[in-house]
Structures are given as C-alpha cells and as structure tokens.
C-alpha cells in the first residue's frame, strides 16, 4: 500500500497502521514527543497501533523543533 508520509510517497507493508508509518519515518531517538495526523485529523498515541491506514492517506509525523516567538 502507498501512503503519503510527510509529503513523500511511501510503500508500507499491509496491513499497515499508524504505528507502521511512525516506524517507517525512522526518527532518531528520543522517540518521545511525536504527534501524528492522518488526513488532517490527530490520532492520539494510544490509538496508533489499532488505527489502520488505507491506500493514499496522508500521514504527518511531527515533533517539536525550535521555532517562533
């Protein structure tokens, strides 16, 4: 299945969940401080494992960075 992961097309093995997408990003530790939106809706961390992804969905995996005032 192909999703749009942080703006880039990405193949995920089926069945894929939000957790698979987070793993595919390959963030360096610490892994805490991440947040996920699927098609513009926030998916709470506790739901990552049981939230399935469908072909073509947009997944954003975000974390805090320096920014703003």
């Amino acid at each position: 299945m192909r999703v749009v992961l942080n703006g880039h097309g990405h193949e995920l093995e089926e069945p894929a969940t939000v957790s698979s997408a987070v793993a595919a990003i390959g963030a360096q530790p610490p892994a805490h401080g991440l947040a996920v939106a699927v098609d513009g809706e926030v998916v709470p961390r506790g739901d990552w494992e049981r939230t399935p992804l469908a072909d073509g969905q947009r997944v954003e995996v975000l974390r805090a960075v320096q920014g703003g005032a």
Partner: peptide, 18 residues
Amino acid sequence: ATVALRRVDPSARGSIVD
C-alpha cells in the same frame, strides 16, 4: 520558551525538548 511543530527529520540529532 516557545517551540514549533514540524515534520520529523530522521537525520536530526538532539532534541530541543531535552
């Protein structure tokens, strides 16, 4: 202190939160 949220950069080292 303020922080922003952006896409995870897999190559980034260290954490502003820490």
